[in-house]
Nucleic acid binder design. Structure first.
Lengths: 341, 341
DNA sequence: GAGAGCAATGGAAGCGCTTTCATTGTAGCC
DNA sequence: GGCTACAATGAAAGCGCTTCCATTGCTCTC
C-alpha cells in the first residue's frame, strides 16, 4: 500500500467529489467548478457532459470546501428571541423566502430573550462565517457588539428603530407605538390608565412611550407581576384581576401583546365589565385570533413578514456591495380599531 | 515581494486564524486545536496561555475549515413546512433547545408543504454536510429519498408514524387520531358527520382515519373547498357555512386544525347553533387559544415540543454511534374534551 | 538502571473546493 | 501572413482547520 493510497479513506465509494466528476467527464476540476458556478464560461457541449456525470453520480458539491476557498458561504444567520411566539415567526418566513430565492440559506438562532445567550449564539454563528447576520433588537451586550463589528460582515438589526444601528436597522419606534396607543385611548378618555407588559427591551419601550404621552394627564398603573417575556394569556388575566381589584372608574389598558390582551379580556368578561365603555383594551401585534375575540380586539398592526423581507433585501444588497442601504429602514404600524377600544 | 507574501491577502489585519494564535502563544497549531477541542490533552499551563491569546485576539475558529477537515459540522438541518403556523414552531423550539445544549446548531428549511421544494432544500442542505437531518412527514419524492439515503447520515422523520421510516421516525398515527375523534363523537351520537380539512398528507390521513371508523355507520360529508395547507380561519368558516346550508339534524365535525375549527365555530355561532347539542366541533393541535374560544374548543392534544426534543435526542444518539434508537418512536396524543364536543 | 508506559507536543498531509495565472486554439483584422 | 483578441481550459497554490504518526521527556516498575 503506497503512502498515497492509505490517505484515501474511501477510494471507491466515498462521497463523490468534484475531482471525481472531473475525472469521469474527462476535464479538469476547475472546469467542473466553472460549470457549476459560472456556466457561461464553459462550452455548452462540455457543460452538458459534466451535467450528465453529475446526474449519474449524484454529486452534491461540498459547500464547506467551497466556502472555505471562496470566503462566501451563502449563509445568512438570524437570531430571534423565539419562534413559538407568533410574533417573529412570520418575520422568519419573510426572511427565508427572500433569502432562498437569492440562493442563500438561513441559519437560525433562538436567544430566548436572553442577552447572554445572544452572545454565545453570535460566537457560534460567526464561526460558520455567514455572509451576513440579522439580530433582533438594538440592545446587545458590549461583547456581542465588539464581536459583530470585528467580524466585518453586513449586519441588520430588526424589530426596533435607532438613529445609530450597528450597521442597518429595519423596524419601527416602540416609543411611538406607546404614544399612539395613549392617544387613541385619550380620544375617548378614561378615569384610569394602565399598562400590562412584559420586560423585554421593546415591550419596555412601548410602555415608556405610553407613560410619557400620558405624563401630566394621568398616572399609568403598572400591575406588579413577575412577567417575563414572552408573556402569556395567564399573565394578562392575572394582571387584569389586579387592576380591577384595585379601584373603580373607567379604565384604559395597553397590553404588551395580543396574547396578554386576550387574557386581560377574558378576566374582564369574567368580572362582567362592559367593553369598551367601562374598560378599553388595546393589544399589540394583531395576531391571527385578534379579529375573533369577543369583542374583537383593538390592537397595533405591524407587517411582521415585511420586516423579514426588508431585512433580507437590505442584507443582500450589502453583500452585493451596495453602499446606499440607509442606516434606518422604517416599517409602518397603525392601530386597528375593533371592538375593545 | 516574494511568491509567498503575495498569497497572504491580509498579512496583518485579516481575521485571526488558529495559526496566528499558535504563533502568539508560541506553540504549534495542533496544540491550539487541541486546546479548543480536547483541552484535557493539554497541560493546564499551556491551556491558559493559549486562552489568553484567544481572548486578546478575539479569535473565532473557522468551522468551515474544521468541518472540512474533521467531516463533522455540528450542524443539524430540519425541514418543516412552515414556522408561522404554530403547529411546528414549538417542535423547532424543542429541537433547538436540545441541540444547542449538545453543542449543535440548527439549519432551518421551510418547505411550504411542497414536495418539490423539499427536494431542492434537501439538496442545498446536504451540500453543507450536516451531521444529521430532520424532515417533516414520511412522504417524500423518490429523488429526495435517494439523495437522503445516499448521503449516509442519520435521518429523523417527524410528525408521522410508519413501520418503515427512512431511518427513524418520531411521531404518531394520524389515522389513529381520526379514528379516536370519530369514537369521541360516536359516544354522543349525531345525525350527520363531517370533516373539514386541509390537503397535506397528514391532514388527509386524519380524515381517512375518521372516515374509516365511521364506515358503515355514516357517510362523512366533506365540504368541497379549495383548502390548501395550511388552512385558515376563513376556510373553516366557509366550510361550516356550506355544511349548515346543506341539511338538517345534529352534526359532528372534525376539523383538520384548531384554526379551522375556530372559524367553523365562529360561523356556527353566527348561525345560532347550539353547541355542542346541535353541533359538535373537534379541532386538532390544542393551540394556545383553544381553551379560550366560546365555548372552549374540544381538540386533540399533542406535545409538539416533545416531538422536537425526542427527534433531537434520537439524532444525537445516532451521531454518537448508537444502534439502538428504534425505527419508530411514538408520541402520545389524546382528546382534550372541553365545550365543543 | 533499562525498558515500558504515558503525558505533552509537533510535523506533515490533506479535507474538497476556488482563485490566480498561465496556456492553447481559433477567429478576426489590416 | 502575422498580430491581437478572446473563448475555453488547465496547473498550482492555498483557504484554515484536523488527523495520523512521530518524538520528547518523564515517571514507574522489576
Amino acid at each position: 500500500m503506497t503512502g498515497h493510497d492509505k490517505n484515501r479513506r474511501n477510494p471507491t465509494n466515498g462521497p463523490v467529489t468534484l475531482a471525481d466528476v472531473a475525472r469521469l467527464a474527462d476535464v479538469s476540476p476547475v472546469t467542473v467548478s466553472r460549470a457549476i458556478n459560472t456556466p457561461n464560461l464553459v462550452k455548452p457541449q462540455t457543460l452538458e457532459a459534466i451535467g450528465r456525470v453529475i446526474a449519474r453520480t449524484g454529486y452534491v458539491p461540498n459547500l464547506l470546501a467551497g466556502g472555505l476557498a471562496s470566503r462566501r458561504t451563502r449563509l445568512i444567520a438570524a437570531i430571534v428571541p423565539s419562534v413559538a411566539s407568533t410574533i417573529f415567526a412570520e418575520t422568519i418566513e419573510g426572511l427565508n423566502a427572500e433569502l432562498v430565492s437569492a440562493g442563500y440559506q438561513l441559519l437560525l438562532g433562538l436567544s430566548g430573550y436572553d442577552a447572554q445567550r445572544e452572545l454565545e449564539l453570535t460566537r457560534a454563528i460567526l464561526a460558520r462565517r455567514p455572509d451576513g447576520i440579522i439580530l433582533t433588537g438594538i440592545s446587545h451586550l458590549k461583547e456581542t457588539r465588539a464581536m459583530l463589528t470585528g467580524a466585518g460582515l453586513p449586519i441588520v438589526e430588526i424589530w426596533d428603530s435607532t438613529p445609530s444601528p450597528l450597521d442597518t436597522a429595519v423596524g419601527f419606534s416602540h416609543l411611538a407605538v406607546g404614544a399612539l396607543v395613549a392617544e387613541h385611548l385619550l380620544a375617548t378618555g378614561y378615569d384610569r390608565y394602565a399598562q400590562i407588559g412584559a420586560n423585554d427591551p421593546r415591550a419596555v419601550q412601548r410602555r415608556d412611550g405610553f407613560v410619557n404621552r400620558l405624563a401630566g394627564i394621568a398616572e399609568v398603573e403598572l400591575p406588579a407581576l413577575d412577567m417575563n417575556s414572552p408573556s402569556t394569556f395567564s399573565d394578562g388575566r392575572a394582571a387584569m384581576a389586579q387592576l380591577l381589584d384595585r379601584g373603580h372608574g373607567t379604565l384604559g389598558v395597553f397590553c404588551s401583546s395580543d396574547v396578554v390582551a386576550h387574557g386581560a379580556l377574558a378576566e374582564a368578561h369574567f368580572q362582567g365589565c362592559r367593553i369598551p365603555e367601562d374598560l378599553a383594551i388595546i393589544g399589540f401585534g394583531d395576531f391571527d385570533f385578534a379579529p375573533h375575540t369577543h369583542p374583537p380586539l383593538t390592537t397595533v398592526r405591524i407587517d411582521r413578514r415585511d420586516i423579514g423581507t426588508k431585512a433580507a433585501q437590505s442584507i443582500l444588497k450589502k453583500i452585493a456591495g451596495s453602499e446606499d442601504v440607509g442606516a434606518m429602514i422604517n416599517v409602518e404600524f397603525h392601530i386597528v380599531a375593533r371592538g375593545t377600544a
